[in-house]
Design a protein around this nucleic acid. Structure first.
Length: 598
RNA sequence: GGUCCAGUAGCUCAGUUGGAUAGAGCAACAGUCUUCUAAACUGUAGGUGCCAGGUUCGAGUCCUGGCUGGAUCACCA
């Protein structure tokens, strides 16, 4: 039962009777009544004035009378200016609640609407450095988005493309060769991705020195940047890699294996996983082939030095490089190949969603255009979910200044703080160390995830290490706490052998807080739908917050187990249980676990 | 300079796609635990919605122009 849909239909019918005309769908505006006004649903009548040819008050009143007559559950109405506030009777709320309560997974579509999947690409790490704060946002958005799309009944494939080749990878390899003293994760005890990252930084430092040296000999910055021996060596290495030089390949495999082991750990802690992982080293060649073919068809052009370009002047853009003069591939080349490979691997897709930062808006705009030029009709199914940057209170993260927030460090810190906070509160003293650790992890990770996901993905966000570690107010811990509270009530009820099965025929009037809670619970389904359509996990996060705020008020104002009237007690237990189920479900869509106690 | 994105309370963010008197949290101040978990609840205070026009019965939301901040325009990824 959907109250809003019923109202819509009745408004159409009422308009026909009253105004001899059925209004356009867009003209029927229904919204929940604002708190300061009396009523449950509000119909905005301004748009209907055209067909009613009466003033707002009269139109609203006539419509109100008609709806009251036609609909049993409309118990009254009031009109304020052009707003018709409908009051609904208690039965409709109890019936709606009953229906929702009876559903195993209210709001979640479990049957699959189509067999063609939505592909969600996220994470896309480089194998030359460990994951940082920006990657965390990326991973969390991507993983949650996949869950939300599944909850909307779509087939979803979570994919990752690992940038395991390219000049930047050669840089860390070269630096390790020169200054690494054959150190390995095994010999140093260091996580592989961090070890390799150190050499990437080392390369950068040494290169800067060389450039500075060259500049002193009178060369321009640009010349120095091109002529520095280190950069030339790195380029040579990339060339050797593409040519299949066995020594280079061996080193590459070795170092990558260290990094993957490190990444796996980080992914596991973050709680994200993938259905299919692609490697650039496997896909870039396909990209090169596409480019060669397009050259033959004269869709692309080759310059005198041998480099290959796409002319995008028709689209108001510049030319875009697709193959370097030495024949090696660039980022774009690889992405072309990967897109085609994915299309073939899945027998097509409904959408290919790239979860990638907004600094690459231009890249994806160009990618789409080139795909279209190459003749792929499905190029319009590529969608760039462009999320904003994560900044620190003092500005952007800069590796040069050492202000990059490392993913592993951050997770450690969050969990540690959760632990300190928990110990201070001392509510878990009868738990074993292992159980406690499990809860600290849920709380610490929950706080981090919620903090990152509650912000609209499109927007840049500020990450304040102090504030994000807060566990009060609009935070993950607050929501988890409410869940734990509910479970506590349920445990007590079970201990006291209080049953809350079934529904009584006697229906008492709902108290305001009870009714508000029922309303907000009923909203869950719409929120899931909306989050799917807008590709915004933030909508789920903000919904969870509103729900638990409402629940906490209800909990504070009314007794549950101590309520003497058994029907009322039963209803409040059901309300609590339902709230718990929705919190768990919603947080689950965000990839956040909820503890039974905290 | 071109293109794209953003600008809401001291700070971090919401705002049901154009609807009523713009909401939360943090920080500040004042209350509520002998009672189902106080990581909670209640209250006070805090706003020229960047500015100026326009469209509309109605604009934080749409359009135009400006201001500020960010991203991007690489034989980097």
């Amino acid at each position: 039962m959907n109250i809003e849909l019923i109202l819509r239909e009745k408004i159409r019918q009422a308009s026909k009777i009253l105004f001899q005309q059925v209004p356009d769908e867009k003209l029927i505006q229904i919204q929940p009544t604002r708190k300061d006004f009396h009523g449950d649903y509000t119909i905005v009548v301004f748009p209907l004035l055209k067909i009613s040819r009466k003033n707002p008050e009269e139109t609203a009143k006539e419509l109100g009378f008609q709806l009251e007559k036609d609909l049993q559950f409309v118990s009254g109405f009031n009109v304020v200016k052009g707003f018709l506030n409908l009051e609904l009777n208690k039965e409709i709320w109890k019936d709606s609640f009953k229906e929702m309560y009876g559903q195993e997974n209210f709001g979640i579509e479990s049957s699959r609407k189509e067999t063609i999947p939505y592909l969600v690409e996220f994470s896309s790490p480089n194998t030359n450095k460990p994951l940082h704060l920006g990657h965390i946002r990326n991973n969390l958005i991507g993983y949650s988005l996949a869950k939300v799309l599944e909850a909307n009944g779509h087939q979803v494939v979570k994919t990752n493309i690992v940038n395991d080749r390219g000049i930047h990878i050669c840089k860390s390899m070269l630096a390790w060769q020169k200054w690494g003293d054959k150190k390995t994760p095994g010999s140093t005890g260091k996580k592989g991705d961090h070890l390799v990252g150190d050499y990437y930084v080392k390369f950068d430092q040494e290169l800067k020195k060389q450039i500075a040296g060259l500049e002193e000999t009178g060369k321009s910055k640009e010349e120095a940047g091109k002529e520095a021996p280190l950069i030339q060596e790195a380029q040579q290495m990339l060339h050797d890699w593409e040519a299949g030089d066995p020594q280079v390949l061996e080193l590459w495999k070795e170092m990558n294996s260290w990094v993957y082991k490190g990444f796996d750990e980080t992914y596991k802690r973050l709680g994200v996983e993938f259905d299919k992982i692609y490697y650039e080293s496997d896909t870039y060649k396909l990209g090169k082939e596409l480019v060669e073919e397009a050259l033959r068809k004269a869709i692309l052009l080759r310059k005198e030095d041998g480099s290959v370009w796409a002319d995008l002047s028709e689209e108001g853009l510049d030319e875009k490089l697709l193959l370097r003069a030495d024949g090696t591939a660039v980022y774009m080349t690889q992405d072309l190949g990967t897109a085609v490979l994915r299309f073939e691997d899945n027998n097509g897709f409904e959408k290919l969603i790239y979860v990638v930062g907004n600094e690459q808006n231009y890249h994806f705009q160009v990618l789409k255009i080139i795909m279209k030029k190459l003749g792929y009709s499905w190029s319009d199914k590529l969608y760039h979910l462009s999320y904003g940057m994560v900044e620190l209170p003092e500005g952007k993260m800069k590796s040069r200044e050492g202000t990059v927030v490392d993913a592993d460090d951050l997770m450690d810190e969050m969990i540690q703080t959760a632990k300190e906070m928990s110990e201070e509160l001392g509510k878990l003293e009868d738990y074993s160390e292992e159980e406690k650790e499990g809860i600290y992890k849920k709380i610490g990770m929950g706080a981090l995830k919620y903090f990152m996901l509650k912000v609209d993905p499109k927007k840049n966000m500020t990450f304040d290490p102090r504030e994000s570690i807060d566990f009060n107010g609009n935070t993950g811990a607050f929501i988890q706490y409410t869940y734990a509270r509910i479970q506590s009530v349920i445990r007590k009820a079970q201990e006291l052998k209080i049953s809350w099965d079934g529904f009584s025929e006697e229906i008492s009037e709902l108290l305001p807080k009870e009714k508000e809670l029922v309303k907000i619970l009923l909203n869950y389904k719409d929120v899931v739908t909306e989050a799917g359509e807008n590709m915004s996990p933030a909508l789920i996060a903000n919904y969870c917050y509103e729900l638990v705020k409402e629940y906490n008020q209800f909990y504070h104002d009314h007794s549950i187990l101590r309520e003497l009237d058994t029907d009322t007690r039963k209803f409040r237990l059901q309300l609590s249980e339902m709230s718990g189920r929705i919190i768990k479900s919603g947080m689950g869509l965000l990839g956040i676990e909820v503890p039974e106690r905290m």
